[in-house]
Design a protein around this nucleic acid. Structure first.
Lengths: 344, 344
DNA sequence: TAGTGTAACGAAAACGTTTGCGGTTAATAT
DNA sequence: ATATTAACCGCAAACGTTTTCGTTACACTA
């Protein structure tokens, strides 16, 4: 059951390993007859070059590493999908690791990938406020790196994101356009750059439409969870019974908010409109269906992988490399939860 | 930026590579002083053994391959999660590939993993009616293989599944217990072994409760999708207006069925009960909330990975290997969609 | 006949490890 | 003084490739 090697072929044919290798790789200094017999034998024995040996020789593994905060998560699954597809198309395989919302774990996963000698690393940063020396280490080791979704300026590399601020701006503008004025924002935690940008977009939209932003309308959901949505929707409505819309950092939070409103018998969107973020599958399933910001997750994956692979290739050819900041377009998907109040 | 090697350390210290290696690996034939200086220098230079070289030497890659039908899918995400966690705990990394519902692609992915020389392969078979010579090839090459979720008898290897027949049996029994008699089954396609078992469980439950199974109550959903659920729920209700329950092959199909029932103004569960399968997150979000069969997906992943890694270890030690068929327990989660009709 | 050219092949080094074995030195035993 | 032993070290082969540089043998030219 041993795998057949060049040596096996050489021995059978009574020639040297060198010649066998050359014959297979199309070198010109091997006679047509030798070449033919080598080719045929290789075919018959189903010879496959040993990838590991090639990895050692070529100093590349044709493997890229991916670190994501959570695997069981629609957005990240979709990103993964894009990455794996793009990688495979270019002859790369993907090793996936989970940082699980922990900066410590993230550091460990980076070490694992470096030790594994992946050709490049793709990641979404788990906590932008934590130390990121471990990320700089990737750069220092000259391992190509592309950040997506959650990125930070301090790291010199290509980045793929959406324009969170503009997306939130558009979402809130839609709410305003539909007749809402007192808009609650259930935002994400401080250590998320997305949360920060989205909150700024929310404030900017209010200002641009002549509504003065009221900080007391902003609540911080640390967990992005349905429970958070329920809890803070309740709190918000107790504090501001006259609120007419809720803009949520993510669909799950919105689902929680909707659940709470339903429980309380508050009509959506007649009394309160709800806007989510990410356009995950639940958005169209829940009742009332949830308006949301569509995020091109799969494309984000593809784009990130493409950028990374390009950089790997350029480094190999010793070409000069430049970094890109790609921002993917988003779309507001309007559903029942934000139907205009004017019509009612 | 070159990685530091044993040779570097040897040169600096003026000793041989052999001695450096031995010092680091704790061989006894190296003097305490030499050992100490080697250790210190290795520490200072941050020496990390070259994994690729070790892979070549040891004929192992400490990598396992995973092939799943679809990445963006709650069940498979959860399985992945379990696999990755268990693998990492044992010093293995995971390469993930998608067979995308195509037996052809599945074959290609297997080739990729074999070429990559993974130490073992984990997969859920995409189509049990298709040729599976490509899967036998894994066995022939003596590469450890563990099948999960969708498995077939013809392949000699360890397998991890749930007891689909019993799970379906319990689900349908619950429906019957709650007062339902004319139960529609939206089943999966013929090429899915799960669908076959679940359908048999459905029939057995009916029989055991004195209800004669009516084949015209069974509909085949090829795509497991919401659309399928809508389409076949409609068809079923047109054919059998007096049906009082629907047992669905999967939660998504159930969601489609519920959507159709809601549209039609049919009350759930008063007029028709709905039972799903998998207990995905949407089950508790949708309204009415969906009763479903809870499948321990993460544990399935852990168990599969554990079995695979064990087999890898045994082969390495030339121990005799035996294969296991693990069946994980399931649970019926009763929610609003199947509240008992007797109480109404 | 000596010199030049060319076609075909192989030796060896390299990628970075590990490990069996042999060799050298010094210390101990007879 | 000689023999035995132990402690310490390094050579070389091995894992499977690729590629540079020789080497050989032969044919052709002057």
């Amino acid at each position: 059951m041993k795998e057949v090697t060049l040596k096996d072929i050489a021995q059978i044919l009574g020639i040297s390993v060198t010649t066998v290798s050359k014959a297979l790789k199309g070198y010109k200094d091997v006679s047509p007859e030798t070449r033919k017999s080598v080719m045929m034998l290789a075919e018959n024995l189903n010879y496959k070059p040993n990838t590991v040996a090639l990895n050692l020789k070529n100093r590349e593994t044709r493997t890229i590493g991916l670190i994501i905060p959570a695997i069981v998560h629609n957005f990240f699954s979709s990103v993964m999908h894009g990455i794996i597809a793009e990688a495979e198309k270019n002859g790369y395989l993907v090793i996936i690791l989970q940082s699980n919302e922990s900066s410590e774990l993230e550091k460990k996963q980076i070490e694992l990938l470096i030790d594994k000698r992946v050709d490049g690393i793709l990641m979404s940063i788990v906590d932008i406020t934590a130390e990121h020396e471990h990320i700089k280490k990737i750069i220092d080791k000259e391992i190509p790196l592309v950040l997506f979704d959650q990125v930070i300026d301090e790291i010199e590399c290509s980045k793929v994101t959406i324009d969170d601020q503009r997306a939130a701006y558009n979402a809130v503008s839609t709410l305003i356009k539909n007749g809402n004025k007192k808009i609650v924002h259930l935002r994400g935690p401080e250590n998320s750059i997305n949360a920060k940008w989205r909150c700024e977009g929310y404030e900017k939209a209010l200002n641009d439409h002549g509504i003065t932003a009221d900080p007391s309308l902003i609540y911080v959901c640390d967990g992005y969870s349905i429970e958070d949505g329920k809890e803070f929707a309740e709190k918000a409505l107790n504090d501001h019974p006259d609120a007419d819309a809720i803009f949520c950092i993510t669909d799950l939070v919105a689902v929680g908010a909707i659940a709470h409103l339903n429980e309380r018998g508050i009509k959506i969107p007649e009394q309160i409109s709800v806007m989510g973020f990410s356009n995950s599958p639940i958005a169209s399933i829940i009742s009332p269906s949830l308006s949301s910001v569509d995020q091109p997750a799969t494309q984000m994956g593809k784009e990130s992988a493409s950028l990374l692979i390009e950089e790997i290739a350029k480094r190999k050819e010793k070409e000069s490399i430049s970094h890109y900041q790609v921002q993917l377009p988003t779309n507001i998907i309007e559903r029942e939860s934000t139907l205009t109040k004017v019509l009612n």
